[in-house]
């Protein structure tokens, strides 16, 4: 799973940080989303999906990655 965020769309509601603090943080100067890891471990997948649902600006989405041999 690859996580993508759009800092231009973000409105700094902080919902993603509450849902998955292991993956999302906020910029010190304006609270805009910072992605801590693009490829979070599988056990956080549900929390990341929840963060995407909760994001009021719809600035978070996921791409299921192809398995490279």
């Amino acid at each position: 799973m690859k996580v993508i965020v759009d800092q231009n769309k973000c409105v700094a509601s902080g919902q993603c940080v509450l849902a998955t603090p292991e993956v999302f943080d906020q910029r010190e100067e304006d609270g805009i989303v910072v992605l801590l890891t693009e490829n979070p471990p599988e056990h956080l997948a549900d929390d990341v999906r929840q963060a995407a649902v909760l994001c009021p600006a719809q600035a978070i989405w996921m791409e299921e990655q192809e398995k490279n041999e």
Binding site: G14, V17, Q26, E28, G31
Partner: peptide
């Protein structure tokens, strides 16, 4: 917005 970040 900075003042309302989760950390702050």
């Amino acid at each position: 917005t900075a003042a309302f970040s989760i950390k702050h």
